[in-house]
């Protein structure tokens, strides 16, 4: 099987920032499952873009990485954490969706020649936005990080239903299942289920602590949650929040936020209210429950308002 890698070379001019070169701290949340929990912040030169949860699964014969971080430095730190624990080949790098904090560390794994795996909508969604993502990477983290951030086209893609999940063999019968979802958080969400330990990597289909952001379809997300809840998992690794949490209870805070947001906006629309009013008022009862609420809620409200107009 031949994997075709597309590399986008970025040329940048500008100031430099120091880089980080130590292994990321990880927790072993289940046997062979390691997770690094990012901070609930926006990416900046203090946190190096360490803002999302990243993980890897060490199987009997190979390693699979789930999300690579917001910068090449974070990706390197993740790779260092793997190499502290095993010399087994890194066979797969799975990107749960196209957002920068889940993909810009991919370059750190290029030397391992893994199969990069993503949703069938991943590449088109990323390429439509890559220009802006790359510009923001330089603004947030500096020219050095941006220069190192090569993007890879997936070597394998997974189709949402009616497509079937992709099963990846890590040797010795340890199989992980990669599932593509209909539009929810984005239009290219993937989850990874490790059946041996009943651990679900949910990507950004599950947020805890940090406010969920909607870049796909809020109603689709609510529907996806019912199917997610039925997955045979004991714990979840959310895309943002703690390294792991009990399943399916971990869905509830997010379900409550999205439900209230949608209900509030429907009520505003019903009384002839405006999109500006929605940005100010919708879901305000949820404010104390989430980090980055003031930063992200108004935009969520605008997104959902425009979408619900077509119900």
């Amino acid at each position: 099987m031949r994997i075709v890698l597309a590399t986008i070379t970025l040329l940048w001019i500008g100031a430099t920032t120091p880089t980080l070169a130590e292994p990321l701290a990880v927790d072993e949340v289940a046997p062979g499952i390691f997770v690094h929990a990012g901070v609930p912040q926006y990416a900046d030169s203090n946190n190096y873009g360490d803002i999302s949860n990243l993980g890897f699964i060490i199987g009997p014969e190979a390693v699979a990485v789930v999300d690579s971080g917001n910068s090449p430095s974070i990706g390197k730190g993740l790779r260092e954490a793997i190499r502290q624990r095993t010399d087994l080949p890194i066979r797969y790098v799975i990107n749960t969706h196209m957002h920068p904090d889940h993909i810009f560390g991919n370059a750190a794994f290029a030397e391992d020649r893994p199969v990069f795996i993503a949703h069938s909508n991943f590449l088109s969604a990323l390429m439509a936005r890559a220009d802006g993502y790359q510009r923001r990477l330089e603004e947030d983290l500096g020219a050095d990080e941006a220069r190192g951030a090569t993007l890879s086209a997936p070597g394998q893609t997974v189709e949402p239903p009616p497509g079937e999940p992709l099963r990846l063999d890590l040797g010795g019968g340890r199989v992980i299942e990669v599932t593509a979802w209909a539009p929810a958080h984005t239009n290219n969400d993937l989850t990874v289920l490790d059946t041996a330990t009943a651990t679900l990597f949910a990507g950004d289909l599950v947020f805890l602590d940090r406010l969920p952001t909607i870049d796909g379809d809020a109603l689709g997300w609510i529907k996806a949650m019912d199917r997610l809840a039925a997955l045979p998992a004991a714990r979840v690794v959310p895309g943002h929040g703690p390294a792991s949490a009990p399943w399916p209870q971990a869905l509830e805070p997010q379900r409550q936020y999205l439900t209230v947001l949608i209900d509030d906006i429907r009520a505003i629309q019903k009384r002839g209210g405006t999109i500006e009013q929605a940005a100010e008022q919708a879901a305000s009862s949820q404010r104390s429950l989430w980090r980055l609420f003031d930063e992200d809620n108004p935009r969520n409200a605008v997104t959902v308002f425009a979408a619900l107009e077509w119900e």
Partner: peptide, 15 residues
Amino acid sequence: TTVKRLTVTVAALVL
């Protein structure tokens, strides 16, 4: 398994 292999040619981009 539903797997689609992408054949994307190398694109060197100058923004």
